[in-house]
Design a binder for these strands. Structure first.
Length: 345
DNA sequence: TATGCGTGGTA
DNA sequence: TTACCAAGCAT
């Protein structure tokens, strides 16, 4: 705590904030996200949606567009849901107990403890990646942190360690400490005020803690996006289901587990998206991108051409011009394609 | 309860 | 290039 007081705090736009709306917003943005990455998003959200009623009244589309590029889009859909719940069912009043906060969609044990302690000075310890790491090293605990037993053990330990006289401050300090001193790689043990009593430092096991189960290998997918322009417009539809990028928009898509030859692709195009496609490969522009996600690798092949007639596909598709397109949220890979594609104006 | 969900930085 | 990780959560 003295370490934290003495100029080791990381300044951030939401630090010291007492407005539960702002704290909630910042914590949702920061889930599994680096502070530097979330910073700009937080400021843009606050500018566009200064209070929970503004956010609740906005269209799904406008909010998702604001979230575009940040990833884990379920967070954004839950943010919208909870904003409307707060504004319309609770007259804009944020719940002020840990249990009630935990009930909010998109709010789990970490976020509930963060809001409870920062906004309401309630004695709940946060347990995030930083806290897992600091506690595992300091106490030399080898229980895997990504299993129920580990979560239980570390949560109990964090709660016991909490400074009840200043829970918010303590939570901030522990996370800052983990982010700047007790780092995942190359921790600054020589600068660490706790090294004389740190079990992992004594046992030289810093690099092996915390214990995590090994990552699974990534699934590989091939996405063939069809980009026909007709009358200056292209067809797009919103992704549904429980797959990646749900809620974002995309052009007609043919998916394959393996790369397709042009001949195979052309066959599928005629089956799934019948149209007056060009007869040969020369009628198409063909560009590929690769995006590595945390759990899968997606190869995006963008196949562009001009059509003389508008095809009669599912009504899910909207044919939109550039201006309409710019208001819709898209996955980064598609945005990158349009940014770099020579045919895009 | 094991698994899936994005993107970007770093070694 | 690849692996790891980041203020986690829902299902």
């Amino acid at each position: 705590m003295i370490w934290h007081r003495d100029s080791n705090r990381r300044e951030m736009p939401w630090k010291g904030e007492k407005d539960p709306y702002r704290i909630w917003l910042s914590e949702i943005i920061l889930q599994q996200t680096r502070v530097e990455q979330g910073w700009g998003y937080y400021e843009r959200f606050l500018k566009k949606f200064p209070d929970v009623r503004k956010l609740a009244r906005a269209s799904d589309q406008a909010v998702l567009k604001c979230w575009e590029g940040l990833g884990y889009y379920t967070r954004c859909r839950n943010l919208i849901h909870t904003a409307r719940h707060l504004a319309f069912d609770r007259q804009g009043v944020f719940p002020n107990t840990y249990e009630e906060i935990l009930q909010l969609k998109g709010v789990g044990p970490y976020t509930a403890a963060a809001i409870a302690s920062f906004a309401f000075d309630l004695p709940h310890a946060v347990v995030d990646g930083n806290v897992f790491r600091v506690l595992a090293r300091y106490h030399g605990i080898r229980t895997p942190i990504d299993k129920p037993e580990g979560k239980k053990q570390f949560t109990a330990l964090a709660q016991r360690s909490l400074d009840l006289s200043q829970p918010g401050n303590y939570n901030q300090a522990l996370m800052d400490f983990g982010a700047t001193v007790c780092k995942p790689q190359a921790p600054a043990c020589t600068m660490c005020p706790l090294r004389s009593t740190c079990v992992a430092y004594r046992d030289k096991t810093i690099e092996t803690l915390p214990v995590k189960s090994p990552a699974k290998s990534k699934r590989i997918r091939w996405f063939y996006y069809l980009l026909p322009t007709w009358n200056g417009k292209i067809p797009v539809r919103q992704r549904t289901g429980r797959d990646v990028w749900t809620g974002l928009w995309e052009p007609p898509l043919l998916e394959s587990a393996k790369p397709l030859s042009f001949k195979m692709l052309r066959q599928k195009m005629d089956q799934v998206f019948p149209a007056h496609w060009p007869a040969t490969q020369k009628g198409f522009e063909w560009l590929t991108h690769k995006q590595v996600l945390s759990h899968q690798t997606i190869h995006g092949c963008f196949v562009e051409c001009r059509l003389g007639r508008r095809p009669d596909w599912s009504t899910d598709f909207q044919w939109v011009n550039h201006r309409q397109l710019s208001r819709l949220p898209f996955p980064k890979m598609i945005l990158d394609h349009w940014k770099h594609s020579p045919s895009n104006r």
